[in-house]
Design a protein around this nucleic acid. Sequence first.
DNA 1: CGTTGAATTGACACCGTTCAACGACAGTGG
DNA 2: CCACTGTCGTTGAACGGTGTCAATTCAACG
Lengths: 255, 255
Amino acid sequence: MVDDVTRYPLTGRFLMGRTRHAMREREKELLESSITEVAEYDRSHLVLVRGELAERSTLLIEGYMLRTIEEHGRRYIVGFHVPGDFVDLHAYALKRLDHDIVTLGPAKVGIVPHERIGHIHENEPHLSRLFWFSTLLDAAIQRQWTLKLEQLKASRRVAHRFSEVWRRLEMVGLARSNGFRTPLNQTDLADMCGTTSIHMNRALSELRREDVVEFRRGLVIARDRSRLESFGDFNPDYLYGGGPLGVQHELDGTD
Amino acid sequence: MVDDVTRYPLTGRFLMGRTRHAMREREKELLESSITEVAEYDRSHLVLVRGELAERSTLLIEGYMLRTIEEHGRRYIVGFHVPGDFVDLHAYALKRLDHDIVTLGPAKVGIVPHERIGHIHENEPHLSRLFWFSTLLDAAIQRQWTLKLEQLKASRRVAHRFSEVWRRLEMVGLARSNGFRTPLNQTDLADMCGTTSIHMNRALSELRREDVVEFRRGLVIARDRSRLESFGDFNPDYLYGGGPLGVQHELDGTD
DNA sequence: CGTTGAATTGACACCGTTCAACGACAGTGG
DNA sequence: CCACTGTCGTTGAACGGTGTCAATTCAACG
């Protein structure tokens, strides 16, 4: 898979760790060549605005992106993306989004016109099914967020988020052995976990005190990863990475 | 649209109030004929189990269905479906789900083998795009749940849920002018809103006391609908029903 | 008319918000 | 080099929202 990142520098991480192995070589080439433009954005760059008619979608190459909704003067983060994610592919079928797409830190993205996606959708059923899968994967992650918001208190929620991001980064080959780096600050974390930055601060110091995980200036470090994951009640199945839900072989053959 | 329900008694409510107008007559016929079996289930019937390989999907014709996750001896409701919803269409691309699909009250469903969906996916790009849209609509609803869990207290969350279900029923022609009927009980509502049944009870009596909405034995009645919706901070845009996000004309023409 | 499941109520502890204030640090310009 | 400034992180105290346990009432149904 490391090979794919060098061979397909723009799209090599798409579905990596999931069903990328089901992609044929010509599909990988087709996807890579569908990117008509590469852009580098600063932090907090608004890529797609809620309600705006979308005519292209964005595949994240480097950095992080968020899905945000601003309401009552407060920003809520309803999605988090790592390299390899086809961030707003769903805009192809929805046309207009109910949320904003925004960069977190500086980010490098590939842009795919909907015309190209339409062509793939009409002529490449196997690849287009993988596209569909990828948007449903985002939905599964969303579902898990809903679940964890319902059942965990703030400190466990952060632990869950950290566990998730760590795994997702690992799947695309971007995690360290003892943690990961992210431009998130405590306010961002609060906006992701449905709490206030003040309470997030207390939650983080609880995690530090209990030796679950350490968060400092965008560096997440855990001495014992399994301790972090069990504190956050994290079960990676919903990431569809090869566990009991993973699509191991079903999508392999011809469609 | 009432016409569609009589002409297509099984699938006439699919995407009704959304992009159904973009469906061609032969697509409606094709969908109707894709249902190879109609089943009637009792309440709490398990239609699809988490982790199980799915080979067919279920379109809800009458009644209600839920997406649930059981963890730590408690059940969490992460999705709610009304007639016309293609409840587990996403199982076509995901193969295995991370949650259960279950009936709430008694329900009548149409079953579509994935073979048929595969045929449509490969040969009917326009219809298959509407399928994709429908799964993304579920995702948008999920996103809104995440948002409201983050920002509202329990009593306002219920008000939001009531507003949503009311609108969704209305879209498929099944609401009353002053409310709607549902087999939900207070425990179900609690499981949907991420709270306990005891607290849900207090939330409901607050809503009654404040004259926002009345919930009794599965009957939801509001004297003033706009009061309910504003109390629940409800904005129907995310339901893609013709407001600013609705796909009014884009999907009309040939694909 | 008794049984059963659902709804209701009170008391109490914990979780989380809010407001206000303070501390740590990096970047900037004098 | 230092003072200034802004952002981010930290802390305390008061208050409101929610979970928990236990007990009671209510409605439906055989």
